[in-house]
Structure formats: structure tokens, C-alpha cells
């Protein structure tokens, strides 16, 4: 789920940047530092939308750097256990398939794919129901439920399931376009 959240960060700035453009510098550094990062707590910071407030700088003893508490708003993407979302299948193998929902990778193990879907190897590996009516392959759009998340330093990895009601391949991809 995408969120619009307000976060705070202490930005350290070297005094040489002080001047009329101090704010711009801080903002630029903030964007550089923060956008694209990922933390377990807030998820991926996709884009900063607004800098709400820059607090009073505090000179760090011993270094001369000045720390500014910066309050900013950003679009963050954070997957939750139990969340249902749509994703694009990126790879299919016999263990299951990987899908992406924005920056997040989700793995759906074959144990979590309905039992009536069988793995078919070949050029375009896929999972297909016995009647062939439903097929999951690369670039398919699926609706899945996240059942577990793992947070690394730089990414969040999820495992998901499509073994539940109303989950699986999105029947009408036209609706999404």
C-alpha cells in the first residue's frame, strides 16, 4: 500500500553550504539521501512531495556539522502481512513465481498456488489449470495476498499466496488498463 506519510530526519550539513540557498541544499540532499531507500518500518520511500519544516540547526560539537531536523512528506510503499494487492509476474519457475508490486518483490511458492494449477516448463514457463483456462506466466497480472515479509537493509521481500478466494490471475486485464 502506498502511503503519504510525514517523516523526520536529522540532516547534517556542512557549514560551507550555508547561505541563501541553504534550504534548497537541504532539500536536495534530503531527496538524494532518502528517495529510493527502504526501511523495515516505513517501507520504500518513493518520492518526497513536500518539505514541511526545517527546524533550527544544531552545531555538532566536535565536527562543526550542523544538524537540522527536517520534517517532510513523502510517498512511501509499505507491504503488510495480510494485505491484498495486485502485482505483475516477473518470473515463473517450478518453485513458484515471482511478482512485483512497485519496488517490492513477492514470491508465491508453488505450495501457495492452488493445487489444480500445474507447472508447465518450456520457453514460457507457466502455471496452468488442468482445463487450461487460467494461466500464470511472465507478465501476467495477479492478485495476491502477502503472508510474510522480510526486511533487508535495502529491500523488503514478501511471500504471497494466491490460494484463497478472489485471488489469482486477474480475469479481466482490460479493466486494469
Amino acid at each position: 500500500m502506498f502511503f503519504h506519510i510525514t517523516l523526520e530526519r536529522n540532516m547534517q550539513l556542512h557549514p560551507r553550504h550555508f547561505g541563501p540557498h541553504l534550504r534548497e541544499k537541504l532539500v536536495a540532499k534530503l531527496m538524494k539521501d532518502v528517495e529510493g531507500t527502504c526501511s523495515g518500518r516505513h517501507g520504500f520511500v518513493v518520492a518526497i512531495t513536500n518539505v514541511e519544516d526545517i527546524g533550527k540547526g544544531l552545531i555538532r560539537e566536535g565536527t562543526g556539522f550542523v544538524t537540522f531536523p527536517v520534517k517532510y512528506q513523502c510517498v512511501a510503499f509499505r507491504p503488510f502481512k495480510g494485505e491484498i494487492l495486485e502485482a505483475v509476474v516477473t518470473m515463473v519457475n517450478k518453485m513458484g513465481f515471482f511478482a512485483e508490486a512497485g519496488p517490492v518483490q513477492i514470491f508465491v511458492s508453488n505450495h501457495l498456488i492452488p493445487d489444480d494449477m500445474e507447472f508447465q516448463s518450456g520457453d514460457m514457463p507457466n502455471y496452468t489449470t488442468s482445463d487450461g483456462s487460467v494461466k500464470i506466466q511472465k507478465d501476467s497480472e495477479v492478485r495476491l495476498k502477502i503472508i510474510g515479509t522480510r526486511v533487508d537493509a535495502t529491500e523488503i521481500f514478501c511471500i504471497g499466496t494466491i490460494k484463497d478466494d478472489f485471488l489469482g490471475v486477474i480475469n479481466d486485464p482490460g479493466a486494469a488498463s
Partner: peptide
């Protein structure tokens, strides 16, 4: 433990503004 199905997503996110795609 968090569970979005039960809306257990943490106080912080519960208060935060969510965005649709």
C-alpha cells in the same frame, strides 16, 4: 503481529494517509 486483514498495521500507518494507486 501485523495483519492487514484485521487492520493491524501499526498505529503510525493507521493514522497516515493512504494513497490509492
Amino acid at each position: 503481529e501485523e495483519n492487514a486483514a484485521e487492520l493491524k498495521i501499526g498505529e503510525e500507518f493507521l493514522r497516515a494517509k493512504c494513497l490509492m494507486n
